Measured scan of single mutants.
Amino acid sequence: MDVFMKGLSKAKEGVVAAAEKTKQGVAEAAGKTKEGVLYVGSKTKEGVVHGVATVAEKTKEQVTNVGGAVVTGVTAVAQKTVEGAGSIAAATGFVKKDQLGKNEEGAPQEGILEDMPVDPDNEAYEMPSEEGYQDYEPEA
């Protein structure tokens, strides 16, 4: 019985440690998101679009440190934060509304985080759909 109880105690310690790591990862992701939003706020009209992409990228980098179902929630929060940063930029006159959601080359930025393969159960990952990809044929 002692062996059984000791095993359960060790398992509990492992769960607590994993929860603490997840909590730490979420806190880091939130900190990076805040950094990115402050970065966007300090940019001029020309830099705002690039700044919004930076927020998304920093958040995406930190999301990889967070495991399990938390990833889905962090990704949703990050996307809403990026959308909010863009709205703030438009409201303050840093950028025109028609410039939001495009990178410096004018290509749409939507789907940055949505296409990231995420499995809350950590069982399997699927690649994003290939609808947006084109076949590449090298020139002879």
Rank of each mutant, 00 (worst) to 15 (best):
V49I: 11
M1W: 15
P138F: 09
T75S: 05
T72R: 10
A76W: 10
K58C: 07
G25V: 10
Q134A: 12
K97S: 14
M1Y: 15
A124Y: 06
K97E: 08
V118K: 10
G47V: 14
I112Y: 13
F94T: 10
Q99F: 03
G73K: 07
T54Y: 09
E28M: 06
E83L: 14
M5T: 07
T22I: 12
K12V: 12
I88Q: 03
G31M: 03
A107W: 08
D2M: 09
S129A: 02
S87D: 09
G73D: 02
P128Y: 04
K34I: 13
V70A: 05
A29P: 00
T44V: 05
V15M: 07
M127V: 13
K6R: 14
T72N: 12
T75L: 10
V95C: 03
G86Q: 10
E137W: 13
N103E: 10
E46D: 06
P138W: 06
G67Q: 12
P108W: 11
P108A: 15
V66N: 01
T81E: 02
P117T: 08
E139A: 09
K102H: 03
M5R: 03
A27C: 08
E13Y: 05
Q99G: 02
A90C: 15
E20F: 13
V16N: 02
A78K: 01
G93I: 05
T54R: 04
M116F: 14
A140M: 01
Y125M: 01
K23W: 04
V26A: 02
E105D: 14
A89Y: 12
D135I: 06
T64Q: 09
I112W: 13
E105T: 13
A19G: 05
H50F: 12
K80P: 02
Q134L: 11
G106R: 13
L8P: 00
H50T: 06
Y136R: 02
E114W: 14
D2W: 12
K12D: 00
E28F: 13
V95H: 02
E46R: 08
S9R: 05
T54S: 01
K32G: 01
V26T: 02
I112R: 07
D115Q: 07
K6N: 04
V74S: 02
V3R: 04
A69G: 06
V37A: 05
L38D: 01
P120N: 05
Y39V: 01
Q79N: 06
E13N: 04
V95K: 13
K60N: 08
G36F: 14
A53N: 02
K23L: 13
V74A: 06
D121H: 07
T44H: 01
L100E: 09
V77N: 02
G106P: 06
A107K: 08
K97H: 07
Y136D: 00
Y136N: 11
A91T: 08
N103P: 04
G25N: 08
A140S: 05
A19H: 01
A78L: 11
I88H: 03
L100H: 07
E61G: 08
T81F: 14
T92L: 13
P138S: 05
E46G: 01
P138V: 05
A89Q: 04
K32Q: 04
E130R: 03
H50L: 11
T81H: 03
H50I: 14
V26W: 09
P128K: 11
V40P: 00
T33E: 00
G67E: 03
A91K: 10
G93C: 14
A29C: 06
T64R: 06
E83G: 05
T33H: 01
G101K: 09
A11I: 07
G51N: 05
T59V: 14
V63F: 05
G25S: 14
Y133I: 09
K34A: 08
A11V: 15
F4N: 00
A11D: 00
D98R: 08
D2E: 15
A89I: 14
V71S: 05
Q24R: 07
A85R: 04
K96T: 12
S87V: 13
T81Y: 13
V118T: 06
Q62C: 15
K32N: 09
E61M: 09
K10F: 14
Y39L: 06
P117R: 08
E110Y: 11
L100K: 09
A11W: 09
K45P: 02
